[in-house]
Design a protein around this nucleic acid. Sequence first.
DNA 1: GGTGAAATGGCTGACCC
DNA 2: GGGTCAGCCATTTCACC
Lengths: 158, 158
Amino acid sequence: MARTQGAALDEVDLALLAALLDDAEITNKALAHRLGLAESTCAHRVRALRERGVIRDTRIRVDEAALGYPLQAIIKVRLANHTGPKVTALFEALASIPRVLQVFHVAGVDDFLVHVAVEDATALRDIVLEHITIHPVVRGTETQLVFELRDGSGMLPR
Amino acid sequence: MARTQGAALDEVDLALLAALLDDAEITNKALAHRLGLAESTCAHRVRALRERGVIRDTRIRVDEAALGYPLQAIIKVRLANHTGPKVTALFEALASIPRVLQVFHVAGVDDFLVHVAVEDATALRDIVLEHITIHPVVRGTETQLVFELRDGSGMLPR
DNA sequence: GGTGAAATGGCTGACCC
DNA sequence: GGGTCAGCCATTTCACC
């Protein structure tokens, strides 16, 4: 979540991103044809987007439920004090807990939002008790069950 | 976030998932070699994981800041009442707001957590006022700035 | 039924216009 | 930006255990 904006993106770049966000597995040939570009040009521009860091990486998404972790939750973590090094260390610790999908470090009432996928309620309790409230700097937690998680519309549309 | 567990995953499946989660762009050849499998076997099993829905899809990740949206936030949304159809409709509406990355429908104090990436504070305010609190069913919102978002360790490690 | 091996078609990447 | 070529990869088919 850093990196300055090297050069502005033109319309072709945005169209490439839109197509790749829609279907990351599209072949270069199909992508070029879809945008009316030569295949070599298309490959060049996509490569440039990667090297500039606009496209960070490619990832697979797994079905957590199919893997045996059907229960998802958001655990809000509030701290007792906010001394820099301890906060950073806790951030690291939270991110390395098994079954943690993502950790948001936020400003406001809560300090961290920990998104987890677990097998059952017992596993959820164990994470909270054994991995989170065990840290002295943690003042309290509040757990919210996730009914459903949906992707947003993303960056591209106006 | 559904789908029943068709058949249990064996060790090879888990190893394949671990490798693909680590590097989604690995070639089938390298993946097979890394696990000591034949290339065809490897391709077969990865294909099977996709067809079973264990691997949902492949996506690129973009750098929102590089795209001109350096400010991320979590907007907590609380509802006045929780009648089914209205909640579902709001879910859809939230997910289709521009600059929305993901929407969590949760149980607890808040009803939705909306993760957005915007260009500046003004754009954030506009989303809250023009796209969220504008819905009559929304009782209130609370916005938390995201300092940093980190990936967790995921599903695989013990 | 799952695994290993070979051949074909197609894509990517590099060089040059 | 666009065209060409070589190398490599994925997919399919078939034989084997």
